[in-house]
Design a binder for these strands. Structure first.
Lengths: 218, 218
DNA sequence: AAATATTTTAATCAAATGATTAAAATATCA
DNA sequence: TGATATTTTAATCATTTGATTAAAATATTT
């Protein structure tokens, strides 16, 4: 008999140790689960929540549709898991930097741009996916997203206020993020092939850092 | 009997004179059609193609679902009409400026930022909608979107090459667009209420223009 | 090996949704 | 006014899709 409640994925936090599941060292087990997560991650970020069918995910994972619901109970639950993972990925790059008191403002800018472009080159679908889902369901993110609050109290914003007291820090931050993230959002429209894109994103690292710094000088 | 082919909306170009439809001066007629278009424009740009149900559009327009299919034959056709309208809206701001040989580079930057922010303040959903649909169906836009080609031959790019021969114009353009468009894409995440957002977008007009110019000086 | 638990599958269900149809209501014109 | 054309509606269809179920296959344990 099928016992769904038993090995079900009730927690939405990716940080849980997958290997520590049930008793044995059966890694075909976690492998199936991981295969589903990998597939869901790919399809969701590529097509967004509404456009992805659970059948797509199952096919991508090479498993049956029912198995997906057996493991994750619903499309929604699986999505929450993936989204939490992606948000953490985005935050994990920003937060340690903007809160690092040991870095100068210029160092923060350099590190931020470098790390963020690295992240986005590996996950080019991330920005449009996350921002699209937030817009599609703002209430679902109200609690999880206090980016403004987090930035407000950061040493990054403090340093920005010191350097340019006459300009709201948000303007500089939006520009920095815009220059960094926008190419990945408008990739299809503004860039030709994937190789030159990647190359040009490498070029942008130094360009954006340079531009951002002179923006703070005037 | 219903004769669908007759007053059907076969053309996807919004520029056609709606008033010139059929014989009479019945403006309740075109009003219904216009109501559907307005409703479709609102719902599509807000929720995207897959997430909008034709029933949503019908309800928003205050009409019956069947009437929508009577006028526009299918969800897809109606969407094509709206999308063409939105693309034209976006291009109508960019093209006349980047191709205007009478404007200096600095004047182009100022006008571009000013006009684009004005457009986006009135149509804040536009960027995420258009870019999202392009990503969802790149093939459907292959022919319509030759933005790269259009820019390549513009006087804007020529002026950029003259001013800074060592930097690929695309980098500057992406930065300019990023600073301008990104706040509207990340609105939900980075900005508080709608009023301060609009106010800050006004502030950005001068800021972006100033920043863009100094980016070209170094 | 036998018993038990877990994993996987095929078949199916129920709801949502784009589309159609035929008839009723309204307008237009002779 | 009466005939004809156009507009609008309610009811219905067919497909898609998330989810469920029960049984088969596989693994685990005793």
């Amino acid at each position: 008999m099928v016992n769904q409640k038993n090995s079900l994925y009730l927690c939405c936090c990716k940080d849980i140790d997958y290997m520590a599941k049930s008793k044995g060292t059966k890694n075909l087990d976690t492998s199936t689960e991981e295969k589903i997560i990998q597939a869901a991650s790919k399809v969701f970020t590529q097509k967004g929540y509404v456009a992805t069918r659970t059948r797509d995910i199952a096919e991508e994972a090479g498993i049956n549709l029912a198995l997906l619901n057996y493991y994750f109970r619903s499309k929604e639950k699986l999505f929450q898991l993936i989204m939490a993972e992606k948000l953490q990925l985005l935050f994990s790059v920003i937060l340690p930097i903007v809160n690092n008191d040991d870095l100068t403002l210029d160092e923060k800018i350099e590190t931020l741009v470098e790390n963020y472009i690295n992240l986005l080159v590996d996950n080019p679908d991330l920005p449009l996916f996350v921002l699209g889902e937030i817009k599609a369901n703002p209430e679902g993110f109200k609690d999880r997203l206090q980016v403004r609050k987090l930035l407000q109290n950061s040493s990054f914003v403090r340093q920005l206020r010191e350097r340019k007291p006459d300009v709201e820090p948000v303007h500089f931050i939006v520009s920095l993020l815009g220059m960094t993230v926008f190419p990945f959002i408008a990739k299809q429209v503004l860039f030709a092939d994937d190789n030159t894109f990647k190359m040009q994103m490498e070029e942008r690292k130094v360009l954006i850092a340079k531009w951002a710094k002179i923006m703070l000088e005037t």
